[in-house]
């Protein structure tokens, strides 16, 4: 008898537990999500996007924010194109990591996809982009550098990676353009990876390099080269001595953001579900730790804000790419 009571109590507890966790997940009593979720990392395992996707999956699971099981799948290729192409044909149980590449791929003629076809679900993080000069450089500040480029745009070798049209490249183009430099004559040396750019700046094979702050800050702190400007709206805690572009008289803020993209035609309930889930996720300690470890800044915006943000971004990139001289 005791046994039966025990079993009954146990199953009751289990049912209760299951119900309560259901409630935690779906506060607005729709029945979404119904099945396993697919989370697309449009990159190979081991890269930044893959790592982000897997970390998000882990947090959503461990903090009991999403109950359905979630698998990260890798769809690398075409700067994200392959993954987003795949997403465009799926239903609401799929989502993918995205970034400004979604916009620039299209503007550069590398893709027919536009963000308008999809359902932007959230913007999550941003990194700021730094411009650094080698030690012993004649240019002490970003203003010095820009003055020289204004006089002779081809006189300075600028290291970037991993390709033209990415944010490291375009943020520099934007700063230079805002300053009045003829940006089509700039001399970019394109390296395969951020590591290569750093090596060449340390070895003095380029004069200037642009990199994510998370890549360059350690070298700056060690005095191996000097960061002269960052693309953030205000100075960063870990780099109190580095001015922003605004302080250098260049009116520009340039985020390198990452977000989450849903497939076309999601219902309001489904969007609301994710607004809630991501809103909850960005408040967790493990999310904050993830940002901290990677040197990312919190940049959370919900679905509506993200849609608006993407529109602004598209206008900005359209203008920028038109003037950069890049081929389409």
């Amino acid at each position: 008898m005791k046994k039966i009571v025990g079993v009954a109590a146990l199953s009751f507890a289990l049912i209760l537990g299951a119900c309560s966790s259901d409630n935690a997940g779906e506060k607005d009593d729709s029945d979404f999500p119904k099945k396993n979720l697919e989370f697309i990392a449009p990159a190979t395992p081991g890269g930044g996007w893959d790592a982000t996707a897997r970390a998000i999956q882990k947090i959503l699971k461990e903090e009991d924010i999403v109950d359905q099981s979630m698998t990260v799948i890798n769809k690398p290729g075409g700067n994200g194109e392959v993954g987003w192409q795949y997403l465009s044909k799926k239903d609401a149980h799929t989502m993918a990591i995205d970034s400004s590449l979604l916009i620039t791929n299209n503007l550069l003629g590398q893709s027919d996809l536009t963000y308008e076809e999809f359902t932007p679900l959230a913007t999550l993080t941003t990194e700021w982009i730094s411009v650094a000069v080698k030690n012993g450089s004649p240019y002490e500040t970003a203003t010095d550098l820009m003055e020289q480029l204004k006089k002779d745009p081809a006189s300075i070798k600028i290291g970037i990676a991993p390709g033209l049209g990415n944010n490291d490249h375009l943020s520099f183009v934007k700063a230079a353009k805002t300053f009045g430099v003829d940006v089509t004559k700039l001399n970019f040396l394109v390296y395969e990876s951020g590591g290569d750019v750093m090596t060449s700046l340390l070895g003095g094979h380029v004069d200037v390099a642009t990199m994510a702050v998370s890549e360059s800050s350690e070298q700056h702190l060690a005095g191996k080269f000097k960061i002269v400007a960052i693309s953030a709206d205000e100075r960063l805690e870990e780099l109190p001595d580095v001015p922003t572009w605004k302080e250098e008289g260049v009116d520009m803020v340039f985020p390198h953001w990452r977000g989450i993209l849903g497939p076309p035609d999601m219902t309001e309930d489904e969007i609301a579900y994710w607004n809630e889930a991501f809103g909850e996720m960005v408040e967790t300690d493990s999310w904050k730790e993830l940002l901290e470890n990677n040197g990312w800044e919190d940049f959370y915006q919900d679905s509506t804000e993200t849609t608006e943000f993407l529109k602004e971004q598209k206008e900005m990139y359209t203008e920028l790419i038109d003037e950069s001289g890049l081929q389409k």
């Binding site: 081991g46 890269g47 930044g48 990876s193 350690e218 191996k224 730790e289």
Partner: peptide, 21 residues
Amino acid sequence: AMGIPGSGTTAVILGAIVMLG
């Protein structure tokens, strides 16, 4: 010694240790 990944493999390792904080 410098925080520069010298090969594809070390780049992957580097990414992973960044994730570890």
